[in-house]
Amino acid sequence: MEVHTLDYIGRMAVMTALVKNYQGAECIKRTVLMKMLYLLQVVKQVPLGYRFQFYLYGPYDSRVLNDLALAESWGLIRQEYIEYSTGYFYKICEELGTDPFLEEFKDVWHPYQEAIRWVLENFRQYDASQMELLATLVWVDRSAVATNAELTEEQIVQTALALKPKATEETVRPLLLHLKRLNILRSLNKRLSRSVS
């Protein structure tokens, strides 16, 4: 099946709308943004056209960074490199060009307004490391769905922990619960529905 995906303007528009609406005027960490885009594409079927692959910090596509660089070049966002004692991160803030751009291309991103609202409402309370785990859980789930595998909660958790060995069960389980409540995990749902029937 051929799916039409958003072009670079559309991708930048969705990205910019996320940055703008992320907890009001606060900047968003790049890892958080990457994972939110992943959830938008995989869970809400926003046709961003990224090809996420599993990387050190969970699902990742370098094209997101290309689009961020482009959005920065257009004066829509600003990326700031923040260094701290044990590492670094990038935060992304809105710039002066954000509002006129979103206004000009509202036809492009408005169809996905509801999805954007959904991801922000349900995930903006999580920090970068939690978002990595959340996206990893979804990744495990979707990988299982792709191969028609059915997984138990325990299998999903253990698989996620194998992918993210520094995480603990105590941190992963509440996140899995959150995803379950949102009815996101399809491999798990199938199994549950079968056992119920």
Binding site: M1, E2, V3, H4, T5, L6, D7, Y8, G10, Y38, Q41, V42, P47, G49, Y50, R51, F52, Q53, F54, P59, D61, W139, R142, S143, A146, T147, A149, T159, A162
Partner: peptide, 16 residues
């Protein structure tokens, strides 16, 4: 484990 691929399996085309 199974080989993990990127999630979207459809053929992707940018709109336009």
């Amino acid at each position: 484990w199974h080989k993990l691929h990127s999630a979207p399996e459809d053929t992707l085309r940018e709109k336009g």
